[in-house]
């Protein structure tokens, strides 16, 4: 990184590009009801939505850790037929409209779905319109962020470190715990944070699969959507909350985990 001025044209286009992202945020800030902010954020519907958002996004992050990490491992370390296809399928939710994901979940895990029907018969658990459905929807949309981040880290990891540890008599568990995980640690943490932030912002799959009920499945993005039609002050206040939390996550990531100066 050098400390010289960028050429004029480059600087100009970069400024326009930056304004493209910054202007809508300023628009949001300009519309914020600062004097009533405390009162608006203190409302029950906002508190419920915040609590549900935290529970579902943390739930999705835990799902991603227990299912996404092994998936990333297999994709990075094992050769098998159809690996490229599997990777594509796993990453599909990154580009798929979330509402399509929600519809697919509904047709699969709904009461009339191929998996949802047997699940209800066996356990009595009905996923749509429940908080479990909201967690499932958020996991579907957010987990690819963990898989893509960790898989990249595992691929870039020099496997000779693990080989050396194993040759010195370390068990597979010890190698994992003492060598591999510490080396991919920063990527794992950034993957988890990205997953969490994406799950926090999840809207389309949630409203399609889990529905929208205050106190049960209405997370912050859904509450913003509903409030836009009536109580715009509340919508703006909750939007601001989401922006600040997401920004905090991304700035933290940048400084600590992406090796920036």
């Amino acid at each position: 990184m050098t400390r010289r001025r960028p050429p004029f044209v480059l600087a100009f286009l970069a400024c326009v590009g930056a304004a493209f992202f910054v202007a809508p945020l300023l628009g949001l800030v300009a519309r914020t009801p600062w004097s009533d902010l405390g009162e608006v954020l203190g409302r029950e519907v906002v508190g419920d939505a915040l609590r549900l958002s935290l529970v579902t996004s943390l739930g999705a992050t835990i799902v991603a850790l227990f299912l996404g990490l092994p998936l990333a491992w297999v994709l990075a370390r094992f050769e098998f037929r159809g690996r490229a296809l599997l990777r594509g399928l796993v990453l599909l939710p990154l580009v798929l409209p979330p509402v399509v994901g929600g519809a697919a979940l509904l047709f699969t895990f709904g009461r009339r779905g191929a998996l949802g029907g047997p699940l209800e018969d066996l356990t009595g658990l009905v996923l749509p319109f429940s908080i479990w459905g909201a967690i499932l929807a958020a996991s579907f949309v957010a987990m690819p962020f963990l898989v893509i981040t960790v898989e990249g880290a595992l691929r870039n990891l020099d496997q000779r470190y693990e080989g050396a540890a194993a040759s010195l008599g370390a068990s597979r568990w010890t190698v994992l715990r003492r060598v591999t995980l510490p080396m991919i640690g920063p990527s794992l943490v950034s993957g988890l944070l990205l997953t969490w932030a994406r799950a926090l912002g999840e809207f389309g799959a949630t409203i399609t699969f889990a529905g929208n009920l205050p106190g049960r499945t209405q997370t912050l993005p859904l509450a913003v959507f509903v409030a836009m039609e009536g109580d715009r002050d509340a919508a703006v206040a909750m939007s601001l909350l989401l922006v600040l939390v997401s920004l905090a996550v991304l700035v933290t990531l940048r400084n600590r985990w992406w090796g920036a100066r």
């Binding site: 047709f107 409203i207 205050p214």
Partner: peptide
């Protein structure tokens, strides 16, 4: 005792059609 409050009538109808409600 609703389980969901849908943003418009056709979204609601879709979930009834699917047998989910």
């Amino acid at each position: 005792a609703p389980d969901t409050l849908e943003p418009d009538v056709r979204a609601l109808l879709t979930k009834i059609r699917a047998g989910e409600l």
